[in-house]
């Protein structure tokens, strides 16, 4: 097993709103290995982005509140660092690519300035010309001519903006890159380009990655391990082969079943029936039980634990308990 870069232990995050408490992330434990890519898959509202932001302590508070748990990075709990210490980590050790490139760049600063800013904040001794130079290098690395550094975000296309954001994220050579649906807002041809670029740079710079997506195809192409998240809980986790070929959780089965196949003739797709439960009013027992075609009485009253069903393949379902198989 490779070395651990970052470990999340029993993380629990709530949003405390006037309408009630939203349990956005509930008892999540994950481990990221050096140089590897972990995919985090789930529907909209499953808690993916909240989980990702908590790793950099970027959850808006209020209303967001980290209730319990640990995020261990380099032997330290990120959640316990003070403001100064966390700033040393942000952008340098861990950096993030956000969902929507259209809104993630500051419209009134040039792209060059925005890249220089992150370099400068972690290399305060650097001179202006050096900053200029390295910002230009970063732009070239993501395939943008360096003389466009003086231009503003509105002069770039969506795909180009995402490249700029990638350049910002990788400017200080981070150990962990969190990519929060980096391609959702882009059209399909650009999606492939951007993902290829992220992968190439990640391998070149030996960066680990947490790739958040709701696209299982993206996971299959880019990840080493996958975690499926549903209503704030990890329901299944394993390497690609385990999750895609030995799928164990009914939700994952449903997700895979809802992908249209190119090779088989299918009359209708099999979507996962129903909707995500209201996050302020989660069902008792297994959160997925109202939508699960295998649900029993026990599922509706008792919360299943996540357990290893062999070789690090983790599943949160009573069906996979010993004796039930």
């Amino acid at each position: 097993m490779a070395d651990t870069l970052l470990e999340i232990k029993n993380l629990k995050i709530n949003y405390e709103t006037d309408d009630g408490i939203v349990e956005a992330v509930n008892d999540v434990s994950l481990r990221l290995e050096v140089g590897k890519t972990l995919g985090l898959v789930g529907e909209t509202g499953a808690g993916k982005t909240t989980l990702a932001r908590s790793l950099m302590r970027l959850i808006p508070s209020p209303p967001g509140k980290i209730k319990s748990g640990e995020v261990l990075y380099g032997g330290k709990d990120i959640l316990k660092l003070n403001e100064h210490e966390i700033r040393q980590i942000r952008g340098k050790d861990i950096s993030m690519i956000f969902q929507d490139p259209m809104t993630s760049l500051n419209p009134v600063l040039t792209v060059g300035e925005q890249i220089e800013e992150v370099i400068q904040s972690h290399n305060p001794q650097m001179k202006k010309e050096e900053l200029h130079e390295s910002a230009g290098d970063m732009l070239e690395m993501v395939g943008i001519p360096r003389d466009r550094a003086g231009e503003f975000p509105h002069q770039f296309s969506g795909g180009m903006k995402q490249r700029v954001i990638i350049a910002i994220a990788l400017a200080c050579n981070p150990k962990l890159l969190i990519a929060d649906e980096p391609t959702t807002a882009l059209d399909v041809t650009i999606q492939a380009q951007v993902l290829d670029m992220i992968n190439e740079l990640k391998n070149k710079l030996h960066t680990s990655m947490l790739l958040i997506t709701h696209d299982l195809g993206v996971v299959a192409q880019n990840c080493d391990r996958v975690a499926i998240i549903y209503a704030g809980e990890i329901v299944e986790e394993g390497d690609l082969h385990q999750v895609f070929k030995k799928t164990a959780h009914p939700y994952t089965i449903g997700l895979l079943g809802s992908i249209p196949s190119l090779s088989e003739e299918v009359e209708r797709l099999n979507p996962v029936n129903g909707m995500m439960p209201d996050p302020t009013n989660l069902p008792k027992g297994c959160k997925f039980s109202p939508r699960c075609q295998y649900a029993t009485e026990r599922c509706k009253t008792e919360q299943p634990e996540i357990r290893d069903i062999g070789n690090g393949h983790l599943v949160r379902c009573f069906m996979k308990e010993k004796g039930n198989e």
Partner: peptide, 10 residues
């Protein structure tokens, strides 16, 4: 979003 981006820079 760009405020998050800025904060994420440290």
């Amino acid at each position: 979003d760009y405020i998050s981006t800025a904060r994420a820079k440290g």
